[in-house]
Nucleic acid binder design. Structure first.
Length: 500
RNA sequence: GUCCCCAUAGCUCAGCGGUAGAGCAGCGGAUUCUUAAUCCGCGGGCCGCAGGUUCGAAUCCUGCUGGGGACACCA
């Protein structure tokens, strides 16, 4: 902490000013409201009360300008010594000496326009509401340049509270993230789907290919897993008779961290009975169109220098046909040896062992097809082997009724006509169990209770998983997932001797 | 896990073998329409950590820690 500021705390108390007062300071307006409505005099601005951080101080002797930053933005303040003639130390000592940039203050006064035309609050009363003991990285900017920008990603993520104070745009991004979630929730609620909450701590994990975090319940002395997906629980609810359920789900995957992956992330999953994946594709088109319009006012989305067009209908391409287009051959007909040869020929690295024939096909898709799909594109009809929870295709053997929505070369959504044949489901999970036994760390474990639920009968159902973080990245033009997570996972801070 | 880059004042950075620097922030002073306010003056550092090379290391080398990027993994 800053030694000088600690001394100021003492000085304040000696003056009889409590640096952390108990009394509330109810406000009646905000910076943005004043700036927006004062020019038209739509509101009464003769006695405004607002609060926020002291952000600039420009003392010119007996008068001063300052800037107050609240949640909505910045507004200029004007202080005159003469206004505090009854108690001169308020201006001479409290304002001029003891208030630091970053201190949280409440002000009361009237709005006027300065000679240079800036809307300003003429402060008649002010009060310190909370002292800031650490200097903030205050950025300064002119038309052309920003000075002392607070840009170190590590500091920004570790101290997101500071990032949020300093960067208006970061606050705006997280408001937009909230608006995206709200738009999706409204879209689903309008259609009568039920928002539910299912277990995060699961005795058996499933619903995706991933390694889980494990934990332990002391009283029951049992191992538990943080969910990697909520899919199997939502399907149990469809068995239970709900026709449409969804959940915004924090999922946890014990895997690497990069620009697109954080160990905990958010998906929304939706299951609707009596529908199939064709229906779901149209729903996803309408959903993303609605979200983009509501959040951005347009379906043309700027992302990483591109314009992504979310106007339906989106492009559709079948999985094997997309690969054939990329490599010039129908890989369904190829043996494992021929596929190995093809990967080498195309310069595609082999997957990590243990791998099977189908993993070579998937590798071709992942390396040669997915990155090339920039505009929103539905890829449909995936191989059965890599889709153990999706229903067999109604007319083609070996593939299932599944689509992924690829945007900007990354998976944004994944959906199936859900597998509801309990015999087939058992067979597929048994195959997963065999893969696990052979060392496949990410193969799904057997879930007998889930199979029992299916045996009671699940209606034909369409299911969807949509990545909220990825969608937020797209709609906020954010270059990494860390930018759209308030508190992305970082290694623990190394304690420095100076701290503590 | 691998490779590359980065780490110097509260923030942003310069310095790259020879006495630690700038701007902003801070402190003292002047200043009643400023807005990167201005003007005068001042303080501020385990140069990420630990070794090594050298007469001498912020600077060169090795290791470690943290971060960023790419790859791998995440079918």
């Amino acid at each position: 902490m800053d030694e000088i500021r600690l001394q100021k705390v003492e000085a304040l108390r000696e003056l009889g000013i409590e640096p952390y007062p108990t009394e509330p300071f109810p406000i009646n307006t905000t910076a943005a409201e004043i700036l927006r409505y004062y020019p038209q005099q739509k509101l009464d601005f003769k006695s405004v009360r607002l609060a926020g951080r002291l952000w600039r101080k420009r003392i010119m002797g007996k008068a001063s300008f300052a800037v107050l930053r609240d949640e909505t933005g910045d507004i200029q303040l004007y202080f005159q010594r003469d206004d505090f003639a009854h108690q001169p130390e308020l201006y001479d000592t409290l304002f001029k000496k003891l208030l630091d940039l970053g201190d949280i203050i409440g002000v009361e006064g009237f709005v006027f326009t300065t000679k240079t035309g800036e809307i300003t609050v003429h402060v008649q009363h002010f009060r310190l509401l909370a002292k800031c003991l650490r200097p903030l990285p205050i950025e300064k900017e002119t038309e052309e340049k920003t000075y002392a920008a607070f840009t170190d990603p590590e500091l920004r993520y570790r101290m997101r509270y500071v990032d949020l104070i300093v960067h208006v745009g970061v606050r705006e991004l997280f408001r937009r993230r909230s608006a995206i979630v709200q738009a999706i929730r409204d879209f689903f609620n309008e259609r009568g789907y039920l928002e539910v909450e299912t277990p995060i701590l699961q005795p058996v994990y499933g619903g995706a290919f991933a390694q889980p975090f494990t934990t332990h319940h002391n009283a029951l002395d049992m191992q538990l897993f943080l969910r990697i997906s909520n899919e199997l629980y939502l399907k149990r609810l469809i068995v239970g008779g709900f026709t449409g359920v969804y959940e915004f789900s924090k999922d946890f995957r014990n895997e690497g961290i990069d620009r697109y992956h954080n160990p905990e992330f958010t998906q929304v999953e939706l299951y609707v009975a009596y529908q199939d994946y064709y229906w779901m594709m149209e729903l996803v088109e309408r959903l993303l169109e609605a979200v983009a319009r509501r959040v951005l006012g347009t379906t043309q989305v700027s992302y990483n220098g591109l314009i992504l067009d979310f106007t339906p209908p989106f492009a559709r391409v079948r999985y094997y046909e997309a690969i054939e287009k990329a490599v010039g051959r129908d890989v369904r007909a190829l043996s494992e040896q021929e596929l190995l040869h093809l990967l080498t020929e195309k310069g595609v690295p082999l997957p990590e062992p243990p791998y099977e024939r189908i993993d070579l096909v998937a590798q071709l898709f992942d390396k040669l097809v997915e990155p090339t799909l920039i505009q929103p594109t539905f890829v449909l009809d995936y191989p059965e082997e890599i889709s153990p929870l999706a229903k067999k295709h109604r007319s083609e053997a070996g593939v299932v009724e599944r689509f992924e929505l690829i945007v900007a070369g990354k998976e944004l959504a994944n959906a199936y006509s859900e597998l509801n044949d309990p015999i087939d489901q058992r067979r597929r999970l048994e195959r997963q169990a065999a893969l696990r036994a052979a060392g496949g760390l990410e193969a799904m474990p057997m879930d007998e209770d889930f199979l029992r639920a299916l045996e009671y009968g699940m209606p034909p159902t369409a299911g969807l998983g949509l990545g909220i973080d990825r969608l937020t990245m797209l709609l906020c033009d954010a270059p990494s997932i860390q930018e759209v997570l308030l508190f992305p996972l970082l290694r623990p801070e190394t304690p420095s001797p100076a701290e503590s």
